[in-house]
Design a protein around this nucleic acid. Sequence first.
DNA 1: GGCCCCTCTTCCATTTATCGGAACACTGGC
DNA 2: GCCAGTGTTCCGATAAATGGAAGAGGGGCC
Lengths: 245, 245
Amino acid sequence: MAEKDTSIRAVERALDVLDCFAPGQLELSLTDISRRINLAMSTTARLVSTLEKRSYLSRSADTQRYTFGPKLAEIGALGFSSVDIRRIALPLMRDLNRLYDEGVSLYVAQGEERICIERVESSRPLRRVINVGDRHPLTRGAAGRVLLAFLPEERQEELLRKDPFTTAEALAELRRSGYAVSLGEREEGVTSIAAPVQDARREVVAALAMSGPSVRFEGPGFDDKTAKVKKFAEAISEALGRREA
Amino acid sequence: MAEKDTSIRAVERALDVLDCFAPGQLELSLTDISRRINLAMSTTARLVSTLEKRSYLSRSADTQRYTFGPKLAEIGALGFSSVDIRRIALPLMRDLNRLYDEGVSLYVAQGEERICIERVESSRPLRRVINVGDRHPLTRGAAGRVLLAFLPEERQEELLRKDPFTTAEALAELRRSGYAVSLGEREEGVTSIAAPVQDARREVVAALAMSGPSVRFEGPGFDDKTAKVKKFAEAISEALGRREA
DNA sequence: GGCCCCTCTTCCATTTATCGGAACACTGGC
DNA sequence: GCCAGTGTTCCGATAAATGGAAGAGGGGCC
């Protein structure tokens, strides 16, 4: 990617302000920042004020010094909980895909839906094509049920009331077994196996699913595939920082 | 704090770009962004290019779409590991302070030093005054040893080689007992009790310390104070997301 | 294969936002 | 009371930022 020379100076300067903050340098005065970025006080004040207005910086009422604002924590958390999950999961998804040459997807919950955030496609001509960005109800499909099963209980009840496609008992069993299976729920002749992915705090942040034509999933190899999906979901969880119990 | 009306438009626009990204909207094209912020394609391209140059955004080579860049994850993590630890810990530090009317501090490690990032002072005239920002060697003092004890082993050995004020055996005992005590190490007549604070991943990210004149710490109440410091350090750890073992 | 539409890049004349210096207010230390 | 340092506000000057236009490239459709 060629680096353009037409960047915007004011924006670079604002980012220079953010770069002033570092471990051990948690709070800085206006003068501190002005000196580090080597700009006039009035210029620095305007930059800092703009970042503060947008909650990227906060100003302490008592010390009048600046720190990172809540917006950065929010963006940081968002960044990690989406893009980095994909990056970390993708190599393992490819490994799973290579084992069986079946489609492997990663889903996250959003509202009443689940969204595919990463996908490794099968090379076989007969395949269930899924695209990154595809959305489906949480109540439908194996990956949906996996995500639904680990939502707060009242949230589960609310969604089940609206679309009683599965039951609280089935979700409890899912939490026990650690995986879900759907046989042609969204598409006739398609089977899907899904398992939960946890982060460092043992929160379920995604569902790993492997799916394909039912003719390839039925029979003696089914238990092996189920075990592998669970194992790879565990591996992704560990890669995300979840420690052994 | 009066909100200034003289913010910098180009900076606001760049932040508008960052605000386009949201859960479920992990990747956006240039056109997506341009439409959301209602600016010309050329203007949007320059804004996005500047953010990409500074690693606040990344551009996917295959899809040509933008996502949050590594810099935001880095800043987000930094923000949480410093300012939010203080905010979360402060109410509990105040509670501990009220129990005994002694000074309560929170330290983090940086390089070969520890830094005081939060402080609740005693109201008594005889007190050991400590300021936010104060730095001391990791090898000295109760809080220093607490932080030192949970560093990687080779890092401990390196620091002990430079300043053999404590021993590997003492650090092992500290890890076992869960607290450290210093009697006049940095200042004659001052006692300090410290315990480790963990985050959601069970990493020791800070040391909670209560200190004051030794005349007030000696005697029958010492064990009670020690137990309380440990208990409050646990409470702070739980508030930071660390689950029960 | 050609056409159309959309995305994206690059360039440049114009506009105005951005800039920093200056003046001033405020605060803490001596 | 004075001084030094921090921070705020204002304004004339100028260069940065802007958006429109032209064009390249790619994908989909016929």
